[in-house]
């Protein structure tokens, strides 16, 4: 139920608990998997982030230690990238929500009477997944490049200055992020709106609420689980994204996000501790932001 997210948990009866060895045994593969592929790399990452350079070693050789200075260094060097990452992710999330909500509402509510149209539109939302994320972003680079038809036409019409670029600007990166995450926003929104009981909307208008007030006071609160799920599915990966902002795709030197910096530190300058420290900061920041957000939106049950 969509409303389960709003139900206070205290009223729910406690399910009878049975301690069983079989249950523990069945959990073993999952626990082993988590330890091996989540916990161990996380600990390794944490240890790497505290490493210090080997005094006599080559570039990229580090010793284990407790070099907290790494964190201070990366924040002071890369604070711009950190702020930019979350700024871009936030703007992209808001834009994706603004685009996806009407779309999801149309598919889930307006198109209820025409199941065929509903199915067709859902397929269109999912269709981009059939093509690689990289290819699609690369295609946008072509479409938006300086020599492309769109940009040359805009320049010909003097809507764009003759020396203007689109790729390499923050607009292009945010555009790419928004475009790539729209399906992740639309699908959870669709699943809640599809179950939205229209009788609540009728009750709202019966109680003197104008269509806009009904939307604000009834539709939005009832679709909150979808909004929260969609924004999380968009914001978290967008904050760590390193494809769209990359110089090889839609970004430029001035649009680098945390993902790009981590990539460069790991793969180019071989500064593993800095990359690890940045990764930990990214993860911790997302955890804090998401935790506060979910707490405030009152949909704890989603976590």
């Amino acid at each position: 139920m969509a409303f389960a997210a709003f139900a206070t948990t205290e009223a729910q009866p406690q399910a009878p608990r049975r301690r069983s060895r079989i249950a523990l045994f069945l959990l073993l593969p999952g626990i082993a998997y988590l330890i091996l592929f989540f916990l161990a790399p996380l600990v390794s990452l944490l240890l790497t982030s505290l490493q210090q350079p080997n005094e006599f070693g080559d570039i990229g050789v580090y010793d284990y230690g407790f070099n907290w200075q790494n964190y201070v260094d990366v924040v002071s060097v890369y604070w711009e990238h950190i702020v930019r990452s979350f700024g871009y992710a936030l703007v992209a999330t808001v834009l994706a929500l603004a685009f996806s909500y009407p779309l999801a509402y149309f598919i889930g509510v307006t198109a209820r009477r025409w199941p065929l149209l509903q199915g067709l539109m859902l397929v269109l939302v999912i269709a981009p997944f059939f093509i690689s994320f990289l290819l699609r972003t690369l295609a946008w680079k072509q479409i938006l490049s300086d020599e492309s038809f769109i940009i040359t036409s805009l320049k010909a019409l003097s809507l764009l200055a003759p020396d203007a670029h689109f790729t390499g600007t923050p607009f292009a990166v945010i555009f790419g992020l928004t475009y790539n995450f729209i399906p992740f926003m639309t699908l959870p929104l669709y699943t809640t709106l599809e179950r939205l009981d229209l009788r609540y909307l009728e009750a709202g208008s019966d109680l003197y609420a104008s269509p806009f007030t009904v939307f604000r006071k009834v539709t939005v609160p009832l679709s909150m689980p979808g909004i929260v799920a969609g924004t999380l599915l968009t914001f978290i990966p967008a904050a760590g994204d390193y494809i769209n902002a990359s110089r090889d795709f839609l970004g430029g030197p001035d649009t680098q996000m945390m993902g790009n910096v981590i990539e460069a530190n790991f793969l180019v300058t071989l500064n593993y501790p800095a990359a690890a420290a940045l990764s930990i900061i990214l993860m911790a920041a997302i955890l804090v932001i998401v935790g506060v957000y979910v707490k405030r939106s009152g949909t704890e049950d989603l976590l």
């Binding site: 409303f3 709003f6 009788r199 609540y200 009728e202 009750a203 019966d206 609160p221 009832l222 909150m224």
Partner: peptide
Amino acid sequence: VFQSYALFPH
């Protein structure tokens, strides 16, 4: 007064 009551669950 609706048949389903339609009380706002939120």
